[in-house]
Simulated scan of single mutants.
Amino acid sequence: MPVLEIKDLSKAFGGLKAVNNFHMTLEEGEIVGLIGPNGAGKTTVFNLITGLYKPTTGSIVFRGENITGLPPFLISQRGIARTFQNIRLFKQNSVLDNVRAVFHPRINYNFFDAIFRTPRFNREEERVISETMELLSILNLASRAEEKAASLPYGDQRRLEIARALAGKPVLLLLDEPAAGMNPAEVKRMVELIREIKKRFQLTILLIEHQMGMVMNLCERLVVMDFGQIIATGTPQEIRNNPVVLEAYLGKGVTVA
């Protein structure tokens, strides 16, 4: 059974079709890149998968269940997590509290326990802090746990957002431009990190990225979009010199050595 199966997915905003007849299948354990020029419809696909938008037509099946049109919190509960192109953190809260907040739907105590600090409350808080610190350690952020999120360097904020996504215990992780704004050394570390978390947490990963060096080295398959439609699919080697892809990115008559 595929982890994700999308068929005939379309999204129209008025007369504009942002996504048109999109289809994709993700198998367990894959890292797949969704690429294309700015405005191609990639983030709209992410928003459809995670329930931020409802599709005009089409279906989204996750682990055998049709999740088309479900609200975001129900989709998250089923095991899909994401990061955003524009980092979304509680900037004035600590690094620790940014991740702890994600555990809230799964805590095993009630209002009474919280008010009177019962043994159950204390046990649950200890568990959440322990799991949070473990995630921060994996993301190399444990030493910054008490700092405000706003004080972190840009690359660390990106990793913190990934830690928040992992705290939801996903099966499928969607990464929206995880290397945006990073220098080559930071991009290399991000590639290593994504490989590590994929193996450690047994994830299937779909990512949007404009850093071609990153997607070529990291992804097993690529899906290329332009003007809301898929224009090519294949391995990085197959996509590298695909004339349709090159025309979409660079114009006609371009080749890559």
Rank of each mutant, 00 (worst) to 15 (best):
R127M: 05
I129E: 05
F116D: 05
T132V: 02
E146S: 13
S137D: 14
E125D: 07
L152W: 06
A180S: 12
P119K: 12
F201W: 12
Y109I: 14
F112W: 12
D97M: 07
Q202W: 09
R100L: 12
A101G: 00
L193I: 13
R189T: 08
A179W: 02
E134F: 12
F227R: 08
T132I: 02
S151L: 11
N98I: 14
A185E: 05
R144C: 12
N140W: 04
M190C: 14
I115S: 08
H210N: 06
K169P: 13
P105N: 09
K148A: 10
M214G: 08
A179T: 14
A101H: 06
F201R: 14
N110P: 00
H104V: 10
L141A: 04
N122M: 10
R158M: 08
E124Q: 07
T132A: 05
E131F: 14
H104A: 13
E125L: 10
M216C: 07
K199P: 01
Y154G: 02
I194D: 02
A167G: 03
R195H: 10
T204W: 07
V128K: 03
A180F: 03
N110C: 01
M225V: 07
R106C: 09
N110I: 09
T204H: 11
L139N: 07
L152A: 06
R195D: 08
L135K: 15
D226E: 01
S151G: 07
R120T: 14
Y154K: 00
E125W: 08
N183E: 01
E124M: 06
I138K: 06
M214A: 12
A149I: 02
M212E: 01
D226G: 00
G155Q: 08
A114M: 12
N98W: 11
L207K: 01
I230C: 05
L218S: 06
C219W: 07
L174Y: 01
G168F: 14
V187Y: 03
E147T: 11
K188W: 10
R221N: 13
F111G: 06
R221I: 05
E209M: 03
L135W: 04
R127Y: 01
L174D: 12
Q202A: 15
G181H: 08
V171G: 15
E186V: 14
P105D: 06
M225Y: 05
H210V: 10
E147K: 14
M216W: 08
M225N: 01
G213K: 12
Y154W: 00
